[in-house]
Write a protein that binds this DNA or RNA. Structure first.
Lengths: 347, 347
DNA sequence: TTGTATGCGTTATCAT
DNA sequence: ATGATAACGCATACAA
């Protein structure tokens, strides 16, 4: 009732050729040789009729949906405040556009992982999968990998079974915490970015411990709490530590988002950064340079991460088998003002 | 080479029935009556074989891709810092899941609107379109609407031609600015959230002017600047105003994201909020309660906006023709500390 | 109650 | 250099 659908037959009729010819011309099929005149005629009429090949028909016969799937392993409630996500989308849309593909996105809640994206894949909705924030307890992932379904992780799981693009969370975290130690801090609290099932959270916490150990500082359970992506969790966990009476002079928040909440708790309890407490985050969200105080943090090249993951997936879809399973991108400690203890926060 | 593809034929064979029966059972076709025994047998074997209908084949024959398209009218560079987007995704994924549909996302750059999503639609990749942040100069939109393609806007365009879900940007902005005026401010700067081609930006600016006029205050061009979504733009524009020497005691930033940047400029120039300058934002991003100072802002129910838009689209796809073209959701002024001039920012 | 036959719009394999 | 024809996997009208 609504859209006038133009088929390749219509184009063929209008151009006085067969459907085959239309297909040959429009797909620029290598072997087929079409007279320049016919080629132009087909192209012109196709354009004038506004012909666009039917995606479903094409997918059905070519066995390629031309769609990349981005699946985020997050609970529903956490996605709304995931300021990291837009950067991932930017990178992936970029790659998709460059390769004439589309981007389908979905989330999979930790509790029903098994069914969730198996469906997506089995229905051949997508040709390949980018999984953001893989969890250690993900079972469906193994299944898909066993079937040789093209998968690239943004993030990483232990071992090098999967194609992955990530930063070295552990050493970056260690580096950040060592920076605090060099600044003279001995009692450093840590609020993770998420629960430890998320490998990135586990790794960052491990880096925190490593830094402590390397410098001969004791790991104090009372200074460690688990965040859950949100600023709110950062606020709550930090407040708990403060109210518990535990002493500390610095905080390592394992994501910027969480760091914002930590900062709020510090401000509220008159322990504000940088004068009274040093604070360091992780991610370098676009707005982290503009919050008060500007946040010292670990820069994660999020868009580039996504771009690499996308390109890697495209390579695999084209039949290549890249040697290198894991790509680790560089992080950099961005020094701003949130851990310049004693200095003015205005530079 | 990779995935074992299970077709309805396989299920039929294994269950000792015909493909038709399989289809009838699995789709729960109303009229067809299948013996309970056969029905169970089909369901069981389908499940044990891990059968999932092929999306392309189904789409081809049913003329329904079962995919919702979310298109953001944004330049590429702005999406990465769009902290509003995750909320939109959450709401839309919600609706998609509830209706057994998928979500495809794309962006369309202002410069090549015409081609961009026409393709998406013509290829029948998506059954309906949700357009976030429509621009006044969008031409492709008209084309699609003329073809009766199902479209719902998140945001609005003048008139009630399109199905739209939005907040009343103008009156919300007016309300916010009037709050500042009631607080005693007479010189109020305004940094918009985006350039005026975006209807939300234009509306919010109009609300700002209305508030001024209603209270008999003059509109001063020197106090108004256009942001472009990012905190960075807020910072830059605010700094320009400050350096221009224009006087003001309050700022209305037309998005929280921009407000963060404004705040940074104020802090840097020793005009920090709330002591020296009142600041009010727009959106109420999840982290706005946690920045320093906690931001007074207009709460926009972003997730709900998306959910409504999604549900409206689903209704339309099911053949309904909802009477009401425009749904306006309530906003609320959230009073935090960024405009409590003279008071402590800690409550 | 279940099976047969047909078509959806495309690409790919053959002929011509 | 171009055209017939056969799949792709499913849903559906119709037959049995």
């Amino acid at each position: 009732m609504n859209i006038k659908r133009v088929t390749s037959q219509d184009v063929a009729d209008a151009a006085g050729v067969s459907r085959t010819t239309v297909s040959l011309v429009l797909n620029n099929t290598p072997n087929a040789q079409i007279s320049e005149e016919t080629r132009q005629r087909v192209i012109t009429t196709a354009r004038s009729l506004g012909y666009v090949p039917d995606a479903a028909a094409r997918a059905l016969v070519s066995r390629r949906a031309q769609i990349i799937g981005l699946v985020m392993a997050r609970s529903h409630y956490h996605i709304a405040s995931d300021a990291f996500l837009p950067q991932t989308l930017e990178g992936l849309l970029d790659v998709a556009h460059q390769n004439g593909m589309r981007l389908l996105i979905d989330i999979v809640e930790p509790q029903h992982q098994k069914e969730a994206y198996l469906q997506l894949v089995r229905a051949k909705h997508i040709d390949g999968l980018i999984l953001s924030g893989p969890r250690l307890d993900d079972e469906a992932l193994t299944l898909l990998d066993d079937e040789n379904f093209p998968i690239v992780l943004i993030g990483r799981l232990p071992g090098d079974r999967y194609y992955s693009v990530d930063v070295d969370n552990r050493s970056a975290a260690r580096n950040a915490v060592e920076h605090l130690i060099k600044l003279g801090h001995r009692r450093i609290a840590c609020i993770t970015n998420a629960s430890p099932e998320y490998s990135a959270a586990a790794e960052r916490l491990a880096g925190y411990r490593e830094a402590l150990e390397a410098c001969g500082l004791a790991y104090d359970q009372n200074l460690v709490r688990y965040g859950d992506f949100s600023s709110k969790s950062g606020y709550q966990q930090m407040k708990q530590i403060i109210l518990s009476g535990a002493e500390f002079s610095a905080v390592f928040a394992a994501s910027d988002e969480v760091a914002y909440g930590v900062n709020a708790a510090l401000v509220e309890q008159d322990l504000h950064s940088p004068e009274k407490t040093a604070l360091i985050g992780f991610d370098d969200l676009p707005m982290s340079a503009y919050i008060n105080p500007p946040l010292t943090t670990v820069r994660v090249p999020a868009t580039e991460l996504a771009r690499r993951a996308g390109n890697l997936l495209v390579q695999i879809l084209e039949g290549e088998q890249p040697e290198q399973k894991v790509q680790l991108l560089e992080t950099h400690l961005i020094l701003r003002h949130s851990c310049n203890l004693g200095k003015s926060m205005l530079s």
